[in-house]
Measured scan of single mutants.
Amino acid sequence: GKMTGIVKWFNADKGFGFITPDDGSKDVFVHFSAIQNDGYKSSDEGQKVSFTIESGAKGPAAGNVTSL
């Protein structure tokens, strides 16, 4: 299901970062391709987002990331 969290950091040059879930669980990796914004796929530190957890090649990753 959908979770909410805060972007801990995001490196636009490398195209990835981490989200800290609101439920206190482990930080989740986020790749720019998962960000659902139109246009520039980046996110700012401290941005509140909703997301799903997908199982990626390197473990859990955020999917369907949407700014709230």
Rank of each mutant, 00 (worst) to 15 (best):
G39H: 11
D22G: 04
E54M: 12
G46A: 07
I6E: 05
Q36S: 11
V30S: 00
G15P: 00
T66V: 13
S33Y: 06
V7D: 03
A61D: 02
V7S: 00
D44F: 15
T20H: 07
G46E: 05
I6F: 10
D27S: 05
K8R: 11
N37P: 10
G17H: 00
G5S: 00
A57P: 14
G24R: 03
P60Y: 09
T66H: 10
S43L: 15
G17N: 01
P60M: 10
D44V: 15
F32T: 08
G39Q: 10
N11H: 06
F32K: 13
S67N: 13
S55K: 13
D22E: 05
E54G: 06
S67I: 15
F51R: 00
I19N: 00
D44C: 15
S67L: 15
K14C: 10
D22P: 01
T4L: 08
N11R: 06
G1C: 13
G15T: 06
K8N: 05
T20E: 06
V7R: 00
F18P: 00
I6W: 09
G59N: 05
G15M: 05
T66M: 10
A57Y: 12
D13W: 11
L68M: 10
S55A: 13
D13S: 13
F16N: 00
S50I: 09
T66K: 12
A12H: 14
W9E: 03
T66Y: 06
S43K: 10
G5E: 01
D23N: 09
S33A: 07
G24T: 02
A57S: 11
H31E: 05
S25I: 03
Q47V: 12
D13V: 14
K48H: 14
K14V: 08
S25D: 07
F29N: 02
D44N: 15
G15D: 01
M3P: 03
G59V: 02
D44Q: 15
Q47W: 14
K41E: 09
K26P: 14
L68I: 13
G56Y: 08
N64R: 07
Q47K: 10
K48F: 08
T4H: 07
G59T: 03
S43I: 15
G56H: 11
F32Y: 12
M3W: 07
K8A: 06
N64M: 09
S25C: 06
F10I: 03
F51S: 01
N37E: 11
S55R: 11
T4E: 03
V7Y: 03
I53Q: 03
H31F: 08
S42C: 14
N37D: 13
D22Q: 03
F10L: 04
K14M: 12
W9A: 01
T66N: 07
D27N: 06
D38N: 12
A34I: 04
K58M: 11
V49D: 01
G5K: 00
I35S: 03
L68P: 04
T20K: 13
S42Q: 09
F18G: 01
Y40I: 12
V65D: 02
T66R: 12
V49Q: 00
E45S: 15
T52S: 08
A34L: 02
G59W: 07
F32W: 15
T20C: 12
G46T: 07
A34N: 09
V65K: 02
G46H: 10
G46P: 09
I6S: 08
F18A: 01
S43F: 15
Q47F: 10
D44H: 15
V7C: 12
A57E: 11
N11V: 02
F32H: 11
A61R: 15
A62T: 01
E45F: 14
K2E: 07
S50R: 07
S50Q: 08
V65Y: 00
K26S: 11
D13N: 11
E45T: 15
F10R: 00
F10H: 01
S55N: 14
V65A: 02
S42E: 08
T52R: 05
V49G: 02
I53C: 08
G17E: 01
T52C: 09
G59I: 04
K58F: 14
K14D: 05
A57M: 11
I6K: 11
S25V: 03
A34Q: 12
G63N: 11
Y40L: 12
N11W: 09
G59C: 07
S25G: 14
L68C: 09
W9N: 02
D22S: 08
T52N: 07
V28R: 00
W9S: 02
K2P: 09
Y40V: 11
N11E: 05
K8I: 07
V7E: 03
G24F: 03
D38I: 13
F10T: 01
H31K: 03
H31G: 04
G56M: 08
T4F: 08
S67P: 14
F10C: 06
I53N: 03
M3D: 01
G63L: 13
E54V: 14
I35Q: 03
S33I: 06
G1R: 13
L68G: 05
S55H: 14
V49E: 01
V7K: 00
M3K: 11
S50M: 10
K8C: 09
V28L: 10
F18E: 01
D27A: 06
W9T: 00
N37V: 12
F18Y: 08
A57H: 11
S55E: 13
N11F: 05
K2G: 06
I35N: 03
K14Q: 08
D38S: 13
A57I: 13
F29K: 02
G15A: 03
K41A: 11
T4V: 08
K48E: 07
Q47Y: 11
T4Y: 06
F51D: 02
F18V: 06
Q36T: 11
G39K: 10
K14G: 06
K58A: 09
A57L: 13
A34K: 08
V30T: 01
G5V: 05
T52P: 03
G59P: 05
H31L: 06
K48Y: 10
D23A: 04
K58C: 14
W9R: 01
T4N: 05
Y40G: 11
D23P: 02
D27G: 03
P21N: 04
D23F: 06
G63E: 08
Q47R: 11
D23E: 03
V28E: 01
S67H: 14
W9L: 00
L68A: 08
G5Q: 00
K58Y: 14
K2F: 12
N11G: 04
K41D: 11
A57V: 13
E54N: 09
S42A: 12
F32Q: 11
W9F: 08
S50H: 06
V65L: 04
S33F: 05
A57N: 10
I53K: 05
K58E: 07
T66P: 02
K8E: 02
D13E: 14
G56N: 10
A61H: 14
P60K: 09
E54F: 11
K2L: 12
S42T: 14
V49H: 00
Y40T: 10
T20A: 09
S67K: 14
K48Q: 07
Y40D: 09
G63T: 14
P60C: 08
T66L: 09
N37W: 14
F10W: 14
E45Q: 14
G56I: 04
V28I: 12
M3T: 06
E45C: 15
N37M: 14
W9P: 00
K14I: 09
D22T: 07
S42H: 13
T52V: 11
K8W: 04
G63M: 14
P60V: 11
D13K: 14
